[in-house]
Design a binder for these strands. Structure first.
Lengths: 229, 229
DNA sequence: CGAAGTGTTGAAGCAAATCAATTTTCGTGG
DNA sequence: CCACGAAAATTGATTTGCTTCAACACTTCG
């Protein structure tokens, strides 16, 4: 949150003082299912999760990747029912915050601003994904995703030297990128053969960030991680 | 906003009492350009506008259609610079609200909730578009768009008997749906030939809503227009 | 050690892109 | 009111990026 707004020590104290009943969840478990009535807000502390939708024909689209520090379902404070599902991709640790807690946080102007910022950044990422899905080809989309995840992992201190943990199998990779597993595999090989990335053992290493960014026209501004004011 | 939250007469009075300097803007004009520093929030009163991004290679993706009652750039109150552009598709009437006005509205809990609701619905629509772009074919995407616009136009009283104004040319239609103009044209003809829609003179008429919805697996829940609590 | 999940490869088919031409519609001025 | 030019819509022929289907190899783990 501090990437988006300036918090005071008092604000930090409020956040750190929240009652925290953290919970472990196994991999591949739904945290929220589309259509569920909205109950608590979840905050991801450890692990990797995703938002997704399943169409009547069974086709699955992953809509967002959630990394530590992300809210899983801030929407639930306002909307009546979930319009998409959320599931863990790896074992995760999450905190559940009752709606009353969220509304009490809104009393603190800078924290309220931070929550709003977080929701707007989610939206900005969604716009970037939509742009890619409409206008970028398979290789560019994959390259863009790997650049984005590097930036986001760096922002929360989970990337070292252009390397980060990315425990996503190729089925899921296809569901993220809107393509088949087979084609995700082939796109990955293109990037590997070009010497741009190495991806094995659930870890991504970006070997040539400049060329990778150039390949997909990456510009990190949409992540709004620099605070200019 | 009243589709999402219950406002009191006092809330309505606050909103109606805002200083309103409305402004006319011609068609095909940028209201906000990507990279602009964020200044005021715009509210669309009349006409049709869109959010869009342009990639380095010139490819354009339209990210959202804005109809009367929509905010053009609520983000600007929090984010430092615009990560996408907004332009009018037809002549429009807009109101500019200074950030100070927005922040003063946040003092009113139900209005604050309404602004938040509005932003979350934008996000929900974005998720639905992303799902379609990844998983639906051209004909289904077009059908889904026409269903969505019918529901949204009805919600603001701008649709009569399954007919609404939709002054979008086929170049723009392609930019919305992430396909070429030629293919947008052919997809439209499929729907016309199936007797599902009529689309001419900048107006859409849904001839068989049930079959059209069935074709694309449409489910309006994501628009969150029913208030259940 | 075997079974299930995951990753990789090949061949064939198809939806959508591309390229290019033609027709229709529409706004504008004579 | 018609003539004209530009914009928009439509059509056809060809190419291509991605899907589909199927087989096979590798890894992981109970």
């Amino acid at each position: 949150m501090e990437h988006g707004v300036d918090l005071t020590d008092a604000d930090r104290a409020v956040l750190l003082g929240l009652p925290r009943r953290s919970r472990r969840v196994a991999a591949k478990q739904d945290l929220i299912r589309e259509g569920d009535p909205c109950e608590a807000v979840h905050l991801l502390l450890e692990g990797l999760a995703c938002r997704y939708k399943v169409l009547p024909n069974g086709a699955t689209q992953i809509l967002a990747l959630l990394i530590p520090g992300d809210f899983c379902h801030l929407h639930s404070a306002i909307l009546d029912q979930a319009d998409h599902s959320v599931r863990t991709l790896t074992p995760c640790v999450i905190v559940e915050l009752p709606h009353a807690t969220i509304f009490s946080l809104l009393e603190h102007p800078r924290i309220a601003r931070g929550l709003w910022w977080s929701s707007l950044v989610d939206e900005a990422i969604l716009r970037e994904w939509l742009t890619g899905m409409g206008q970028r080809d398979a290789e560019e989309r994959l390259a863009h995703l790997l650049c984005e995840m590097l930036a986001r992992m760096q922002a929360v201190g989970l990337a070292v030297a252009n390397t980060y943990s990315f425990p996503v199998n190729q089925i899921e990779l296809g569901e993220i990128l809107g393509m088949t597993t087979v084609h995700a595999n082939r796109s990955l090989q293109q990037l590997r053969n070009a010497g741009l990335v190495s991806y094995g053992n659930k870890r991504v290493e970006i070997l040539d960030l400049n060329r990778l960014q150039e390949l997909c026209g990456y510009d990190a501004k949409y992540l709004h991680l620099q605070r200019d004011r």
